[in-house]
Design a protein around this nucleic acid. Sequence first.
DNA 1: CTGAAACTTAACCATAAAGTTAAGTTATCG
DNA 2: CGATAACTTAACTTTATGGTTAAGTTTCAG
Lengths: 123, 123
Amino acid sequence: MVKFQQAQLDRTFSALSDPTRRALLARLEGEEALSVSELAQPFAMSLPAVMKHLDVLSHAGLITRTKTGRTVSCRLNADPMEEAMSWLARYQRFWTQRLDALEALLNERRRDPAPGEGGSGGA
Amino acid sequence: MVKFQQAQLDRTFSALSDPTRRALLARLEGEEALSVSELAQPFAMSLPAVMKHLDVLSHAGLITRTKTGRTVSCRLNADPMEEAMSWLARYQRFWTQRLDALEALLNERRRDPAPGEGGSGGA
DNA sequence: CTGAAACTTAACCATAAAGTTAAGTTATCG
DNA sequence: CGATAACTTAACTTTATGGTTAAGTTTCAG
């Protein structure tokens, strides 16, 4: 049963690994529903190429498509992202740990400023 | 400049889209450091195959490898996941919204139970 | 009923991914 | 120095990705 979830995660992460597809999703984040041609319009690539990306997205469950007449409405379905977030959340402690350490260091310096280390510096 | 981040996200999501690689990372989540052969041991595939996965992970910056004598220590570096989390976080409202709506619905029913709708139901 | 708009399918190509086996490298041990 | 352990590289195969152009479908407008 955990195998199915694995495959879903595979599809989700894989779908998200392409910048065109992330841009498509980002577009749908602000628009409720867009047709295939509206989605395709900003991209330099051909319509069929965009279609393939939409296929990947809908196979991953990240969009739904409904045909009305000759136009197809695409809308976002973020649900599969929740599982991806959960997977990543397991590792969150590693960077919060790091940030905590940084914060501690900064607090320490604020309390007891070391000489010759003030001013501007990029990290 | 945002292009570089895009490529990093590509690599991160792509690296995470394979179950073997996620298993390798999960292993390193609990172990601080493991050698290549220790990491490879649980898998049915050949050593070179695991090597390639490790190459992908380190190219994505998700692990670091340090050679000591003839053994190579791999350790987790979760930092790139933070960016992936941030990207996903933009969409978090979509499922929390959904959960909020569900919760509201349940509260409403608890207050004012509709007749003929009790019991078990799918979806 | 013709034609254009909005997709969809098909056929093809180049490159990358994921695996294999076989043949190197380096280290460490006896 | 020779053998073995721990990787690494090379060469190859198969399948998947991401793109193309060309040729269908439907559906709506005139």
